[in-house]
Computed example of a mutant assay.
Amino acid sequence: MIKLAILTPKNSYEKIKSSLKGIECEIKYIFYNNLYDLEDLYLKNAQKYDGLITSGPIGFEIIKNSVSLFTPLYHFDISKGDLYKYLFNILKENPKIDFSRVYIDFISPEKKEYWFQDIFKKEEEPIFYKIDFSNKNLYETLKNNYINLKKENRIDIVLTRISNMVKFLKKEKISFDFLFPSEENIKNTVQEVIKDIKILKSEKKQIIFGKILLNKVEEDIEEEIHSISKNCIVKVSDKGLEILMIYEDFVNSNIALNLKKKLKEKFFSGWGKGNYINEARYNAEKAYQKNKETDSELIYLVSTNSEIILTEIDNEKKKNIEIIEKLKELNITKQNSEKLIEMFQIREKVSCASLANYLSISERTANRLLLKLEENNLAISELIKINRGRPKKLYQFYF
C-alpha cells in the first residue's frame, strides 16, 4: 500500500483528515509550528514514505529550495473556484464591502492577473504585497504587513491561506477569513499523488539497455563502468559494450553522462527503456542510430512512448534539433534541414529559385519542398507585386 506523510500545522489537521475518508493509502500526519522545522522534517521522514504532501505552497517551496528532493513532494492548494466561492460568501454577507480594503496575503502582485483577470477595476482591486513562499521569515513578514495596514486604517478584512496566522489575527483583533482547499480539491490532489507515485514505482523497475560502440575496448572497461554504477551487468565484445540495469539505478548513477566524461575517446551510444529486455534492447538500437546521426553529439534515452535527450545542451541547439526532427518526418535531409534553419534564423524570405540555388537542387524540387512545408504549417507564402510580369511568390519559414 502507498504510504504518504502530510506536513501540516495542527489547526489544518481536522479539515484534511475529514476530506480523506475512504482514500486507500496509509497516511501519517506530521505537525509543524514554524517554517524553520520543515527542512529537518522532510529529511527525517522522506525515506519512510512514498511521497510527502505539504498543506500549502509555503511548505512546499521552502523544502524544495532547501534540500535536494529524493522522495516526491506535493502540496495542497486552493483553486480559482475555491477562491471565488469564498469571495461570493463574503459579498453575500456584506454587500457593501470595499474590496480595495481587503488584503489577500497569499497572492503576489505579479500573480493577481491569473486569479482576478478582468474582475476588478484598478481602484477596486484588493491589496497585494510581494510574497516569497520560500522565505523562512515569511510569518514575520506577514505579521508586519497586518500590523502596518491596521495602523494605517487601510483594511477591513484579511483573506489568509495560512492557518498559522489565524491565532495572530485573532490576538490583534483583525477581521479575517481563513481560506482552505475544498474537500473535493484535497481528495483529488491525494488521488493524483497516489497515481503519480504508482507510475514512478513502476518506472523505477523498468529495464534500461545500453548499447555502446568504441574504437578500442580497454581491459579495465568493466571496472570503469562499475565505478560509476555497481548495480549493472556489463557484456564486453571486440568493439562494443552492452549494459543492463534497472531505471532507478540508471537515474541515480547518471551513467550515460558520467560514461561520456570518463571515456576520453569518441564513441556512439544509445539507451533504451522497456518493461522487458527485448523492448529495452529495441529502443536502445533506435537511440543508438539517432546518436550516430548527430555524430555522437547527443545521447538519447528512447522508450516506447517518449524520447529524451540526456546531453546537456543550450536552448538554441535543442530547438535546432527539434526542427531537424520535424523536417526529417517530411523526408528532408539533415544537411538541407541545417541550411533551412540558417535561412529561418536570419528571417530571410525566399523564392523557389533562390531556395533551389541555396540548396543546389532543381527549382521543381525546391517548389515541392516549399509546398510540403506550407502544407505542414512550417512556412507561409505571399505574393509580391513586381513592375513586370506575374507577381513573385515568397516564403517565410516558421519553425
Rank of each mutant, 00 (worst) to 15 (best):
G22Q: 09
E26T: 10
K28Q: 12
K28S: 12
F31A: 07
L35S: 06
E39Y: 03
L41G: 07
K44D: 12
K44E: 14
A46T: 02
D50W: 06
D50H: 09
T54Q: 02
I58E: 09
E61D: 13
I63H: 04
S66Q: 06
S66G: 03
I78V: 12
S79K: 09
K80Y: 06
G81H: 10
D82P: 06
F88K: 04
K92L: 14
P95F: 07
V102S: 03
V102P: 00
I104R: 03
K112N: 12
F116V: 01
F116S: 03
E124Y: 08
I127M: 04
N135T: 01
K136G: 05
K136M: 11
L138H: 00
L138I: 02
E140T: 04
N145Y: 07
Y146A: 07
N148W: 09
N148C: 10
E152K: 15
N153G: 07
I155H: 04
D156V: 04
N164R: 11
N164Q: 14
F168A: 11
F168R: 11
S175R: 15
F178D: 07
L179M: 13
P181E: 00
E183S: 14
I186M: 15
E192W: 05
I199C: 05
I199G: 06
K201D: 05
E203P: 04
K205Y: 02
K205C: 09
I207N: 08
F209G: 00
G210L: 04
G210E: 07
K211Q: 09
L213F: 10
K216I: 12
E219C: 11
E219A: 13
D220W: 08
S227Y: 04
I228D: 06
S229H: 01
D238Q: 15
K239E: 09
L241D: 08
Y247P: 01
F250M: 11
S253M: 06
S253Q: 07
A256F: 00
N258G: 10
L259M: 15
K262Y: 02
K262C: 07
L263I: 15
K264W: 08
F267Q: 09
G270R: 04
G274Y: 11
A280T: 05
N283D: 01
A287I: 01
A287L: 09
Y288S: 01
N291A: 02
L301S: 03
I313E: 00
E316D: 15
I321D: 03
I321L: 15
L327G: 00
K328A: 15
T333Y: 10
T333H: 10
K339G: 03
L340T: 01
Q345Y: 13
V350A: 02
V350Y: 00
S351V: 02
A353N: 12
N367C: 10
R368K: 14
R368E: 07
L373F: 12
L373W: 10
E375W: 08
N376V: 00
N377T: 11
A379K: 06
A379V: 12
I380F: 14
S381Y: 08
N387C: 08
R390C: 04
Y398M: 14
F399P: 03
F399Y: 13
